[in-house]
Amino acid sequence: MRRRIVAAAVACDYAALAALGDEQGKSLRFSFGPDEDLALFWRKAEQEQGQPVLARLVKILNLPYTKQGELYVWPTAFRDNATAQDFDALEGILPDAQLQAMKRERSYYGLRVGISGNGDWQMAVSGD
């Protein structure tokens, strides 16, 4: 699933990403707001707000993961007791000021991705 998400994101294929998110049921959490269409939500974030969602998704999924129960979660900075090295891995992915604030607080609230062991993409959400 990770490789398929990366391929769809590199191709900027919002429809494929939405299909991957719904592949095993409508369980993908991608925002804390009202229910929206994944493709529309991310397209608006990229085109109207200038957020590099898909590029960031690819970069995050190319980092090491951590496990939380049965869920594989990227990046490792999201885990409890994340190390400075976990945060350092995010240099160039997140704005420096944002990354430094998270590092000081030892709390990661950037984009995190979760995929279950059976390949169900369950989360791609930012925020706290």
Score class of each variant (00 low, 15 high):
residue 1 M to W: 05
residue 2 R to N: 05
residue 2 R to M: 01
residue 3 R to T: 10
residue 7 A to Y: 04
residue 7 A to N: 12
residue 7 A to L: 12
residue 7 A to I: 02
residue 8 A to C: 08
residue 8 A to F: 06
residue 8 A to I: 08
residue 9 A to C: 13
residue 10 V to G: 05
residue 11 A to W: 08
residue 12 C to T: 11
residue 13 D to F: 06
residue 13 D to P: 07
residue 14 Y to S: 02
residue 14 Y to V: 02
residue 16 A to R: 12
residue 17 L to D: 02
residue 19 A to L: 12
residue 19 A to W: 06
residue 19 A to D: 12
residue 20 L to N: 07
residue 20 L to H: 08
residue 21 G to N: 07
residue 21 G to K: 06
residue 21 G to V: 04
residue 22 D to G: 15
residue 22 D to V: 04
residue 24 Q to F: 14
residue 24 Q to E: 09
residue 27 S to D: 11
residue 27 S to N: 13
residue 28 L to R: 10
residue 29 R to P: 09
residue 31 S to N: 15
residue 31 S to Q: 11
residue 33 G to D: 14
residue 34 P to G: 14
residue 34 P to S: 12
residue 35 D to K: 15
residue 35 D to Q: 14
residue 35 D to C: 09
residue 35 D to E: 13
residue 37 D to M: 09
residue 37 D to L: 10
residue 39 A to M: 05
residue 39 A to Q: 08
residue 39 A to C: 07
residue 42 W to G: 09
residue 42 W to H: 09
residue 42 W to L: 11
residue 45 A to V: 01
residue 45 A to M: 12
residue 46 E to Q: 14
residue 46 E to H: 09
residue 47 Q to T: 12
residue 48 E to Y: 06
residue 49 Q to T: 08
residue 50 G to D: 10
residue 51 Q to D: 10
residue 52 P to I: 05
residue 54 L to M: 13
residue 55 A to S: 14
residue 57 L to D: 01
residue 57 L to P: 07
residue 59 K to G: 10
residue 60 I to L: 05
residue 60 I to G: 02
residue 62 N to D: 07
residue 64 P to Q: 02
residue 64 P to M: 00
residue 64 P to E: 00
residue 64 P to I: 00
residue 65 Y to R: 10
residue 67 K to L: 07
residue 67 K to Y: 02
residue 68 Q to P: 02
residue 68 Q to F: 06
residue 69 G to F: 08
residue 69 G to N: 04
residue 71 L to R: 13
residue 73 V to Y: 03
residue 73 V to C: 02
residue 75 P to G: 01
residue 77 A to I: 01
residue 77 A to P: 04
residue 78 F to K: 14
residue 79 R to H: 01
residue 81 N to V: 00
residue 84 A to V: 09
residue 85 Q to I: 00
residue 87 F to P: 09
residue 87 F to V: 05
residue 87 F to Q: 06
residue 87 F to Y: 11
residue 88 D to G: 03
residue 88 D to V: 01
residue 89 A to N: 07
residue 90 L to H: 02
residue 92 G to L: 06
residue 92 G to D: 08
residue 93 I to W: 04
residue 95 P to M: 06
residue 96 D to T: 10
residue 97 A to D: 15
residue 99 L to W: 02
residue 100 Q to N: 11
residue 101 A to P: 09
residue 102 M to H: 02
residue 102 M to F: 01
residue 103 K to M: 10
residue 104 R to L: 12
residue 104 R to Y: 01
residue 105 E to N: 13
residue 106 R to V: 04
residue 108 Y to D: 05
residue 110 G to A: 10
residue 111 L to S: 03
residue 114 G to C: 07
residue 118 N to V: 12
residue 120 D to H: 13
residue 120 D to S: 12
residue 121 W to Y: 06
residue 121 W to A: 05
residue 122 Q to V: 10
residue 127 G to N: 11
